[in-house]
Every structure is written in structure tokens, then in C-alpha cells.
Computed example of a mutant assay.
Amino acid sequence: MATGKPKFLGGVYSTPQLPNFTAYWNQVVPENAGKWGSVEATRDVMNWTELDAAYNLARTNGYPFRMHVLTWGSQQPTWIETLPAAEQLAEIRQWYAAVAQRYPTIDFLEVVNEPTHQPPNTTGGGGNYINALGGSGTTGWDWVITSFQLARQYFPTTKLMLNDYSVENTAASAQRYLDIVNLLKARNLIDAVGIQGHAFSTRGLPVANLTTNLNTLASAGLPLYITELDIDGVNAQSQLDDQVQLTEYQRVFPAFWEHPAVKGVTLWGYRPGHWRTAQGAQLVNEDNTERTAMVWLKNYVKTTVLGTAKADNAAVSLCPNPVTSGYFTLKGTDNLTTIRVVDIRGQLLREIALRNQASVDVKLDLRPGMYVLQLLDGKTISSKKLVVE
């Protein structure tokens, strides 16, 4: 569907989702096969069968492959939960090393999944090994940092990703997630930011709010990926309703697909048998006939021209630069919709909305140093360096 586009549109690997997979999707992620509890349910007995199949599907077709997932607080081996911390860490290292050895060309690696919702600190499948990774520590997220340090060691050429849900639906959750991303970025440990994009996070969320929260997450300067998209398709009576699903697809999907920081979108299942079948999130029926939202989606992806991110915007001038008084003026901003000021850690300091303004005067109370102005026109993100003396 997205062949020839600058972004991929991927699908999840599981038996119910395989029919006609390559007719629609050009990126692969395993649904359950890559979870530690699936691979090593019994200590030192590794079951790679399904994960091999998902990996080979990607490699055979030349699709990007995302490994889901190394460290999480769900679907983990129960045998690790009662081991001493040192032994747990040794097992975690063995798990990382085994994945790295078996799958040398992983494109994207989810190092930690759902850190703000399901850390590995419980029993009954929750891992109970958070302290072996350093616990909260001095940063509040030392266990996440340790996980990424291990991943850099075992996967030196792979793009490392953090992944979580409901981080795009409120400003507070987006900022909390960004704080973790920036801790990792400051240590050169992260390459991409995953946002699951489930229906329960986007339903009822105004698109303007969704875009603002995506902008917050994009302020770290890392590519964003929508990793587990699903959009429900039932009415108030829990009956399949194509119009309900179509309307929500037309509202939500473009906000993700057209955002300049989003470099790929993956659906978390598109046929009956995926985890939100009861909510009608499938895009095709059991007989493989396409629902209305799928017909629309194919046409939308085919016909939508996507913009690209670019570096310095020569059409926009910044004066004075360096800034000494806190005041500066941007000219040539006629086509801009938003200006964001971020520091070198990617922290968003100020966001200014524009509407057909040829110039804009800005007053900022900033410490001396280097900053970046991100200039958005709805299709691209360009930038200008700002020096404050």
C-alpha cells in the first residue's frame, strides 16, 4: 500500500494476520513471538519458531523488521521472578545476546516497552527484575537507562526504540514520556520513539491536541513511529459499523501519517483474530472482503503527497543572532503554522502558533547558550540555530 512512499505502513505478524499480508503492508513486527515469555517460557529452552518466521517474512520481502520486545513488565518468564538480582541480570544479558546473535539485521529494536505503565516489577509474568537493572535510581528511570546501555552493547548498529501507549493523549503524559526520551538521548542511547496509537488513546481526542502532543514528543529531534495502531469499528450497540470506523480513520489516521516527524505507521492487526476483534478494529472481514475504511485507506495513502523534514530554512531570516536582549524577529514566516523553541536536550521551551504572518517578534527569557527554532508549515519541519549571549 505504501510502496514508493517515504514512510512505511506495516502490519503485525501472527497467524490470523498473514493472509494477503504482502498485498497491504511493507514492514513487519511480531505480535507475541518476540516476547521473552514466548521464547523462553522454560529456562534455557528457546522457542524461536514463530519469531524466525516473522523475521524471515521481512527479510524475504525486503521489509523493515521491528523486534518486539526485550524488556517489559508483561509476558515475561515466570522462572526469572524469584532469582537473586545478580542472577536475573545475567539472564537478561543472555536474553539480549541470544536475540542479537540469531537476528543480526534487526532494523528497529524495542528495548523497553511501556515504561510508564508496566515496568518489570511484579510477579505472575511481570518479570520482577526491575531492581536487577538498577531500579528507579537517581534519575527515576535508571532501569530503562541500563536496558538501553545493554542494548547498545549487544546491538551496536540497530536503531534502538522506546515504546509506550497513551503518551499522545494528554500534555502531561507526553511530557513525562519525553523526559525519559531525553534522559536516553543525553546518553546517546536512543534512535527512535515509539507511540502505540491504540483506539482507547485516540478516541474522543481532538486532532489539535493529538498534533500538539506529537509536536512535544518530536521536540527531542528523534523520528517518531506509530507502532500499534488500531481504530475501532462498532456502534453504541457493539455491532460492526463501517461508517463509525471510516469516520474515525478519516479523523485520526491523517494526523499520524502526515505529521512530519512520524516516519512509519504499523497496524496492530487488520483481520479478525487480532486483539481488538470485539471492538471491530479489523479492516477486512473473515472472507477477506474489505471494509469501507480499508477502501478509503488504500486510496488515501496512494494519493496523499507527503512532505519531508529539512534542515536550515534559508527563506526565513532571524535577526539579531546572537540575541543579547531576549528579543529577536523572524521574517519570511508567511507559510509557517508553528514555531517551537527547544534546547539542546530537545526540551520544548516555547510554542508559538502563526497564521499568515510575514514576520513575528519574539521575546524569550533564556539562559546563554545554543537553542534550535523548529519551523513547521504543516508538511515539513525545518530549523534555525539560535544563539543567546
Rank of each mutant, 00 (worst) to 15 (best):
T3Q: 15
T3P: 14
G11A: 09
V12M: 04
V12F: 02
P19V: 07
W25E: 02
W25I: 01
N26L: 06
N26R: 08
Q27K: 11
V28T: 04
K35F: 03
W36S: 09
W36L: 09
S38A: 13
V39S: 05
V39L: 09
E40D: 11
A41D: 06
T42Q: 14
R43F: 03
D44S: 15
T49W: 08
E50G: 15
A53H: 07
Y55D: 06
A58W: 14
R59T: 12
N61M: 07
G62F: 14
H68N: 06
V69C: 15
W72L: 06
S74L: 12
L83W: 05
A85H: 10
L89I: 02
A90L: 11
V99T: 05
R102Q: 08
I106E: 01
D107C: 11
L109S: 04
L109Q: 02
V112P: 00
N113Q: 06
P115R: 01
P120H: 08
Y129D: 04
N131S: 10
G134R: 00
G134P: 05
V144K: 00
M161Q: 11
S173Y: 06
S173L: 12
S173P: 07
A174K: 01
A174N: 03
Q175S: 15
Q175L: 15
N182H: 06
K185H: 07
R187H: 13
I195V: 14
R203K: 13
G204S: 10
G204F: 13
G204H: 13
N209L: 14
L210E: 05
L210R: 03
L214W: 07
L217W: 03
G221L: 07
L222T: 05
I226M: 02
L229Q: 07
D230V: 09
I231K: 02
D232T: 08
G233V: 00
Q239P: 05
T247Y: 04
F253Q: 02
P254A: 07
A255K: 01
F256A: 04
F256D: 02
W257P: 03
H259E: 02
H259T: 08
A261Y: 01
G273F: 12
W275S: 10
Q282H: 11
L283P: 01
N288F: 08
E290V: 04
E290W: 04
M294S: 07
M294Y: 03
W296K: 04
L297W: 01
K298R: 09
V301W: 05
V301G: 06
T303R: 12
T303S: 15
V305E: 13
L306H: 04
T308M: 07
T308I: 08
A311E: 13
A311L: 12
A311Y: 06
D312L: 06
A315Y: 02
A315N: 13
V316Y: 00
L318G: 07
L318E: 03
C319Y: 14
N321V: 10
S325M: 09
G326C: 04
Y327F: 14
F328Y: 13
T329H: 07
G332R: 01
T333K: 01
N335A: 15
T338L: 12
V341R: 05
V342R: 01
I344F: 12
I344W: 10
R345P: 02
G346K: 03
Q347C: 08
L349S: 12
R350A: 10
I352A: 03
A358E: 13
L364Q: 10
L364W: 12
D365I: 13
M370C: 15
Y371W: 05
Y371I: 05
L376W: 10
T380M: 10
T380E: 12
K384N: 09
K385F: 12
K385P: 10
